[in-house]
Amino acid sequence: MDEALQLVADGVVVAAALAVAAVGLSLIMSVLRMINVAHGDLLTVAAFAALVCVNAGLPLVIALIVAAVASALIALGLELSLWRRMRARGGSNFSLLLLSVGLAYVVRHVLFLIFGEETHQYAPPTRELAIGPVYMTREGLTVVAGGAVCMIGLAALLKWTRIGTAMRAMADNMDLARASGVDVARTSAITWVIVGVLTGVGGVLLGIGGRIFPNMGWNIILLVFAAVVLGGIGTAAGAAVGSLVIGVGQELVTHSALGLPPEMKQAFVFLFLVVALVIRPQGLFGARRYV
């Protein structure tokens, strides 16, 4: 039982970082109807941006802010230079996806070229703290807290602000939103900035909870996608629940009672993704329309 509880605790830490990554991907899928395969690699960029700051002697909080700002600027730059141009030309969902695959390859291998294959950490891990029956590191707790703040903040922004309403309107029905006076180009750009900030924070949280290396984002992009699909596209709650199920689920699969090699855990998540897409592509909470 203790082993299972510990696995749940580990899973929650994974889920917290996953949720921040997932909600960004999910917003772009709902508001702009695009699957951004490069999302994982943009998380990696943010994690490395923070690493450069930390190595320069800056405190991690400042590094986080720098990473978030850099990531938002990159996201905005890509929207203005690439995605918008492609949409204006009537590019299909699929041509946008292909374009993002190309971008993912460029970004990841530029990181390899600059930073090499080694793995890095922001700081050596601290001692584990006993919390009830489970053990957690200070880093793990930071990730959970950071994830929770991001998710609640985003949910509030979507629900109560003007831009949040505009984003939900675009997700609902692009033409109706435009006809009702939503500035689609401006809302798209702001959506990318918000997603950029989330990507920045998500990347750094991933780095705090684990290690930083050029493949870190690509390795989790299918997990992130699974979380989005499971929870349903376009809501913070959906991304959070989807991430919890995926994060905790993949740790529980490694329980010694099942006797499976740990490498198999991802195969289960992917299988789950395929089955979920086929049976209920709208997710647990999502509406049918996106699929």
Binding site: V229, E263, A267, L271, L273, L277, V278, P281
Partner: peptide, 21 residues
């Protein structure tokens, strides 16, 4: 039955499942 870009992700996952198995 899936929308085109969702099929792309599904098949990407199938490839990874094969490799891990």
């Amino acid at each position: 039955r899936l929308r085109s870009d969702y099929l792309a992700i599904t098949t990407l996952a199938v490839g990874e499942i094969c490799r891990i198995v």
